[in-house]
Amino acid sequence: MSRNRELISKIGLRLDGRRPDELRRIRCKMGVFSQPDGSAYIEQGLTKVLAAVYGPHQVRSRQKAQHDACIINTQFSMAVFSTNERKKRPRGDRKSTEMSMHLQQALLSVIETDLYPWSQIDVYVEVLHADGGIYPACVNAATLAVIDAGIPIKEYVCACTASLGNNEVPMLDVSHQEEILGGPTLTVAALPMSGKIVLMEMSQRFHLDHLPKVLNKALEGCKDVKAILDEAVKNHVSEIGSATGWANTTS
């Protein structure tokens, strides 16, 4: 157990100046690339993630095809220079495979797969800079990319991390430095509008007494993230739409 350095100072500010329940700055853009069917870029604090979606298209391997739903194929890869210490391999190690699976799990819960039997949707996520909260950034980027590709989804899936500072105050959206110095981290992917949890993951040890309040914090964070993503989507749509003239019909 690492020494508990004060992650929340006496004045109630964290190491980077945020209050415990504030998210990092999120900026995002959809439609970054032209070749993929849908693409998005998201920056959460210093974590930068690019997502690209291809599909729905024909399955590449006949065996995997399903007659009543489309399969979602995800790949998670981190650029070699994304971490502070240079990584040797961008993907193929266990962590990447696990992340891909988690991503797939999150997306499967929202994408309307029964609309596309015998097809495949590819979602590729590339991490350019990893500074804590990698999985949430990937999920958020993937959601945006899927929306950009025009694939129908039930609702947004957003993710957020939360942790405990000073052993009792729940903190939202932990950066890498706080992860290392502090205690356990809880990652939650949820459907904010309906309040359901898609995926929950935790590192280190958490005391059962503290779990509910940290979980609540994380869910609130997901709601906030959804609001930001929603705003971005609306902006993007009205931009694109105004180019082709159908923005006028909606206003």
Partner: peptide
């Protein structure tokens, strides 16, 4: 590193 973002073939 050829990212799969470029084409699915790079997966």
């Amino acid at each position: 590193d050829c990212s799969a973002n470029a084409t699915p073939d790079f997966e």
